[in-house]
Design a protein around this nucleic acid. Structure first.
Length: 221
DNA sequence: GCGACAG
DNA sequence: ATCTTGTCGC
């Protein structure tokens, strides 16, 4: 099962059992780079989301970081190929998301994933997986977290550490005053400060990033 | 051992 | 993820 396009699966491919899936994560986790490349100045950000009906609809939307307006988008539909298992989320959504990314006219500069990156039991959530396979900088924004955190301050921009087994794996970030925080973590080729800044840029008005909102709309239309 | 568990 | 109306607030 090939994902096509520029994706490099590093010989791991797609598993069809939970045991194999965990092995893939263990095999790829060492490829994650949590440093922002020199001169990283993205002009756009691409959001990824999947909607569930009889089939899965993967949608990807690229927005201009200056205006937050949609500049490119694509969808790809397909059947469910892996069950939902917490911690193995990427195997369910990523095959379709990669195909959707291939349909974009302009190459993505940053992937904004709907879920976790390093804030994952094996430090290899969806955002890490997407980043490593594509080689594109990536970050994760989850609506819920797996780790432990103290409530951040009440104002937009306030944040607190998200930890797991005593390790800092991300941040609980308040994107709007007095609104439940989102959970930001590094996916690939990016540090946590950069990821946090990007998420704040993408949330001038709403709790969730504009990329995620656009992709969500497209996926359910 | 038991519960909790991204979407 | 999804099943679902009204309501409060900017």
């Amino acid at each position: 099962m090939d994902s096509g396009g520029v994706v490099d699966n590093f010989g791991w491919g797609w598993p069809d059992s939970e045991v194999e899936a965990v092995a893939v994560q263990e095999g790829l986790r060492g490829r994650v780079r949590a440093a922002t490349p020199e001169g990283f100045r993205p002009r756009t950000a691409t959001g990824l989301d999947v909607h569930y009906t009889d089939v899965l609809t993967a949608a990807v939307c690229t927005v201009d970081l200056e205006t937050l307006e949609l500049v490119d988008s694509a969808i790809f539909q397909g059947p469910e190929s892996f069950p939902y298992v917490p911690g193995l989320f990427a195997f369910r959504e990523l095959p379709l998301l990669l195909r959707a990314l291939d349909k974009l006219t302009t190459p993505p500069e940053v992937l904004v994933c709907d879920g976790q990156g390093l804030a994952h039991p094996r430090r290899f959530g969806l955002a890490c997986h997407a980043g490593v396979l594509t080689g594109i900088p990536a970050l994760g924004v989850g609506k819920n977290a797996l780790g432990d955190f103290d409530q951040p301050g009440p104002r937009r921009g306030n944040w607190s550490a998200l930890t797991d087994d005593g390790e800092v794996v991300g941040r609980a970030l308040r994107t709007q005053d007095n609104v439940k925080p989102v959970f930001v973590s590094v996916g690939h080729l990016m540090d946590l400060d950069t990821a946090t800044d990007l998420v704040l840029t993408l949330t001038p008005r709403y709790r969730l990033p504009e990329t995620t909102r656009q992709a969500d709309h497209l996926a359910r239309s």
